[in-house]
Design a protein around this nucleic acid. Structure first.
Lengths: 141, 141
DNA sequence: GAACTGCTTGACGTATACGTAAGCATGCGC
DNA sequence: GCGCATGCTTACGTATACGTCAAGCAGTTC
C-alpha cells in the first residue's frame, strides 16, 4: 500500500482532481454534507483561493466515511476510525497497541451487529416465505 | 415496588407482569426511553390507575424494538416493522402482498448492510492482525 | 401521619446530522 | 461589461432520540 501510494505520488502529474460538485454528484450527497464533514475534521481538501479541491485520496476518504456511516458509526467515531487507517504505516509501539485495541473493539462490535442482522434476516425470511406460500394458496383457488 | 408486582405475578392466568422499572433494568435502558417509545406508539401497556403494566408480549415487543434499533432502523420504521410481525397471522390477500413487499425490501436492505459490514470487518482484521504482527517484532527484541 | 419511594405527566434542554436561505466573491461566455 | 452559474461563509431551522428537571399523586414504612 505504501508502495502504491509512493507510485501514485510519482505520477502526480496525472492525478485527477475533483470539485465539490463532482464528489456530491458521484456519491449522491449534498455539497452541504461534504462541507459539514470538513467542519468535523473528516476531510481536508486543498484550496485554490476559497474553492475546495479534492484529490483521489480525499475521494477515497469520503468513500470510507460513507461506508462507515452506512454501517452505523457516528461521525465522531469515524474520525478515530480514519486515524486508524492513517496510522497503519507508523510503527511506534504505543500507537500499535492503540490501533490493536481500537480495531479489536470495532471488530467485536461489528461481529455482534452482524449476528443481530443475521437473526433478523432469518425471521424476516420466515415471514416473507410464509406469506408467499399463503398467497399462493389464495391464487390457487 | 414494581419488582414486587413481578413477584406476586398474576397467578390467575399464570402470566408474568412487569413494571416499568423491571423492563428498564432488564434491557438496561431508561424509563424515559420506554415512555418515549409508548408516545411513538411502539408499545401500549395496560394501566392500573396511572401506572403502566407490561405483559410478556410487551416485553418481547420491546426486545424486538431494541434489536431493530441495534441494526440501524429508525423508530418510525420500527413501527411498520412491528406491524409486519403482528399481521403475520392474518391472511387477507392485500395484506399478504404488503407484508411480502415490505419484508422483501428489508431483507435486501439488511443483506446489503451485511455485505458492507463484512467488507469493513475484512479491512479491520487486516489492520488488527498486521499491527499485532508488527508489535510482536518489537517485543521479540 | 409525615416521610420516603416510585411512578406520572408535561415542558424544556441537548446532541447529532444535516437542510435552507441570505449575501458576497469569482469566473465564463457573449 | 454584464448576467448567470458556481462556490463560499454565516446563521438559523429541522428531525430524531432521548435526558433532565419540576411538581404532583399513590402506596409503604416507621
Amino acid at each position: 500500500m505504501a508502495g502504491a501510494a509512493a507510485e501514485r505520488e510519482s505520477v502526480r502529474d496525472g492525478e485527477t482532481l475533483y470539485g465539490i460538485a463532482d464528489l456530491a454528484a458521484h456519491f449522491d450527497i449534498s455539497q452541504r454534507t461534504i462541507r459539514f464533514y470538513e467542519d468535523k475534521g473528516l476531510i481536508s481538501p486543498k484550496r485554490v483561493g476559497t474553492q475546495r479541491i479534492y484529490t483521489e485520496t480525499d475521494r477515497q476518504r469520503l468513500s470510507l466515511i460513507l461506508r462507515a456511516k452506512a454501517i452505523g458509526s457516528k461521525l465522531s467515531e469515524i474520525r478515530t476510525f480514519l486515524d486508524l487507517y492513517g496510522r497503519e504505516g507508523e510503527g511506534r509501539e504505543k500507537q500499535l497497541r492503540y490501533v490493536i485495541a481500537r480495531t479489536g473493539e470495532k471488530i467485536a462490535e461489528l461481529e455482534d451487529k452482524r449476528r443481530q442482522i443475521d437473526e433478523t434476516l432469518d425471521e424476516l425470511r420466515l415471514i416473507h416465505e410464509g406469506s408467499k406460500a399463503r398467497l399462493a394458496k389464495f391464487e390457487a383457488r
